[in-house]
Design a protein around this nucleic acid. Structure first.
Length: 152
DNA sequence: GCCAACGTTGGC
DNA sequence: GCCAACGTTGGC
């Protein structure tokens, strides 16, 4: 079992959206490292911290679970999509994704400020300056502490 | 809205 | 294959 942190902008797709739809294809990731995590490193059942970026305040708002196997992101073949990639073909897809399902929403967000203030959690990649990756691996000890501090 | 960080692109 | 220019992310 691996743990992850997935970023999303709440104005676009937040924890409440996931709670409403229950399950969501994580489409639109166009970064190779993040793609590789979804394609090769995630396993069905892995748990992920759901992080609100570009939010006031930013922070971890809940938990999602990886569902099923990777498959090509359909938006890459959709010419009308902002995520369309003309260099990708169905025979040789460039972008892969997973579905995530809703697990829980924290009663209170654990803010980035709170993460940085914690000596253990300040080690997390999301706390490091310049980390723009939308999907990052999370150590089990960090995951557990986030849950503990969030009362989950 | 500013700007630092950093990934990608494309000319050479 | 180098690297400058450019675009994007995302906290502040």
């Amino acid at each position: 079992m691996h743990h992850w942190l997935i970023k999303s902008e709440p104005d676009v797709f937040g924890i409440d959206h996931l709670a409403a739809v229950k399950r969501e294809p994580w489409s639109g990731v166009r970064n190779y490292q993040a793609r590789n995590y979804m394609w090769k490193d995630m396993k069905a059942g892995d748990l992920a911290l759901f992080y609100h970026s570009n939010a006031k305040p930013p922070g971890v708002t809940g938990i999602a679970r990886v569902v099923g196997e990777p498959y090509p992101d359909p938006t890459q073949f959709d010419e009308k999509s902002e995520y369309h990639d003309p260099k990708s073909t169905p025979e040789n897809p460039r972008w892969w994704l997973r579905d995530f399902e809703f697990v829980k929403k924290f009663d209170e967000m654990l803010t980035l400020e709170a993460l940085k203030a914690d000596s253990l959690l300040s080690e997390m990649l999301v706390c490091q300056r310049g980390t723009r990756l939308s999907i990052t691996p999370v150590e089990a000890v960090h995951y557990k502490r986030v849950c503990k501090l969030a009362g989950a």
